Simulated scan of single mutants.
Amino acid sequence: MAQIKALNALEPFLALTKSATSPRAAADLVTRATSTPNTYVFAELLQSPQIQALPQAPEYAHLNEQQTLKLRQLSLLTLAKDPHNLSYASLQSALGLSDARALEDLVISAIYADLITAQLDPHNQVVHVSSVSPLRDLAPNSIPSMLASLQEWSGRCTTTLAELEAQIAAIKDTAAQKHGEKKAWTSKTEELIDDEKSFEKGAHGHNQSNVVSRAVAGMRSGRYGKRDRGGNSIEVEADDDEAMDLDDNQDLNEGFEGAASGAGKKRVNRRKM
């Protein structure tokens, strides 16, 4: 935006170069162009033949007050690019200013002209510059070095972009791997939960059978258990089902025989009576 504004301000003076055929007219054109506000780029004006011929007329090699201010403002733009060399003393020496007050006035005029964004620090005697407008003309033969710098910068950008793309690809691969591991872990967990439920269901039915078997064995043990000499109960093994079944049949037979014997005795007694 600042460059467009400066070029538009210079445009009328470029149109007048064709009519400035005499040294006096060319010098007057330069004076007006450099003294006008908002004109800070002059490369196109200086390249015109009429202006190139002015060094041949020494009587016009002078600067007025406005030209001197404009020149110092542009010089301040160049100096402001080095933030480590912006003390009052160094700026006064480079700009040809007599005191700190003159330097502060110059900095303030550059700030109001939107040439720099800066703050004055009188206590520490330093100028803090945060931004500089790109309004300096290129020095002669500076294009090759500028192209080399741009190519170097472009190479660094290409390398950085390649590194970023590699890092992004690695992050995506890691994320995909973690997603797959999480999915497999979830599937395995669900499978284990299903297996546990099936096992618990089967174990519940088996346990019920075991409980019934142990209950029957306990009842048989309590019914047919024998006592030792000390009066202690001797438990019958619950697993010996066949022996217990034989004992049950024997007891039943003995019961029937006893009952029959008793009945016979009763008949005998009745006959005696």
Score class of each variant (00 low, 15 high):
residue 16 L to A: 04
residue 251 D to L: 10
residue 272 K to L: 00
residue 131 S to A: 14
residue 2 A to E: 10
residue 204 H to Y: 04
residue 165 E to A: 15
residue 43 A to F: 07
residue 207 N to C: 08
residue 4 I to P: 01
residue 144 P to G: 02
residue 238 A to N: 12
residue 228 D to Y: 06
residue 134 P to L: 12
residue 184 A to L: 05
residue 157 C to R: 03
residue 30 V to A: 08
residue 60 Y to M: 00
residue 227 R to Q: 13
residue 86 L to P: 12
residue 265 K to W: 03
residue 114 D to G: 10
residue 140 P to L: 01
residue 159 T to N: 11
residue 232 N to E: 00
residue 31 T to F: 00
residue 168 I to V: 15
residue 59 E to L: 14
residue 26 A to Q: 02
residue 188 K to E: 14
residue 230 G to E: 09
residue 242 E to M: 09
residue 199 F to T: 07
residue 71 L to C: 11
residue 98 S to P: 01
residue 110 A to M: 07
residue 37 P to N: 06
residue 122 P to W: 07
residue 98 S to E: 05
residue 268 V to G: 00
residue 238 A to S: 11
residue 97 L to C: 07
residue 190 E to L: 06
residue 62 H to P: 12
residue 10 L to N: 06
residue 40 Y to R: 12
residue 25 A to E: 06
residue 242 E to W: 15
residue 211 V to G: 08
residue 73 Q to H: 04
residue 104 E to L: 06
residue 35 S to D: 05
residue 133 S to P: 08
residue 248 D to K: 13
residue 254 E to A: 13
residue 5 K to H: 09
residue 135 L to N: 05
residue 223 R to I: 15
residue 118 A to D: 04
residue 255 G to P: 01
residue 4 I to H: 09
residue 152 E to M: 07
residue 149 S to N: 10
residue 24 R to D: 13
residue 32 R to S: 13
residue 78 T to Y: 04
residue 264 G to L: 02
residue 28 D to Y: 00
residue 92 Q to I: 09
residue 258 G to M: 07
residue 112 Y to E: 14
residue 176 A to F: 01
residue 232 N to D: 01
residue 238 A to P: 12
residue 214 R to E: 14
residue 55 P to M: 03
residue 61 A to Y: 03
residue 247 D to V: 08
residue 168 I to F: 05
residue 212 V to T: 07
residue 243 A to N: 10
residue 183 K to Y: 01
residue 241 D to K: 13
residue 113 A to H: 04
residue 24 R to Y: 15
residue 162 A to Q: 15
residue 136 R to P: 04
residue 185 W to G: 08
residue 194 D to F: 00
residue 50 Q to K: 02
residue 268 V to Q: 00
residue 129 V to R: 09
residue 200 E to R: 13
residue 15 A to R: 05
residue 24 R to I: 15
residue 167 Q to A: 09
residue 197 K to E: 01
residue 197 K to V: 05
residue 265 K to N: 10
residue 104 E to W: 11
residue 109 S to I: 09
residue 148 A to E: 12
residue 102 A to V: 13
residue 227 R to T: 06
residue 19 S to H: 02
residue 12 P to C: 03
residue 147 L to W: 10
residue 168 I to S: 13
residue 53 A to Q: 02
residue 11 E to G: 10
residue 21 T to I: 09
residue 80 A to F: 06
residue 257 E to F: 09
residue 126 V to K: 08
residue 61 A to P: 14
residue 137 D to L: 02
residue 21 T to R: 03
residue 199 F to I: 06
residue 96 G to S: 08
residue 113 A to T: 11
residue 122 P to E: 09
residue 77 L to W: 11
residue 188 K to I: 04
residue 175 A to V: 06
residue 272 K to G: 01
residue 75 S to T: 15
residue 62 H to W: 11
residue 182 K to T: 02
residue 73 Q to T: 09
residue 11 E to P: 08
residue 121 D to P: 01
residue 159 T to W: 02
residue 15 A to D: 12
residue 2 A to W: 06
residue 189 T to A: 00
residue 253 N to C: 05
residue 175 A to D: 04
residue 144 P to M: 00
residue 53 A to C: 01
residue 8 N to V: 14
residue 153 W to A: 14
residue 97 L to N: 07
residue 127 V to H: 00
residue 98 S to R: 12
residue 156 R to V: 14
residue 1 M to S: 12
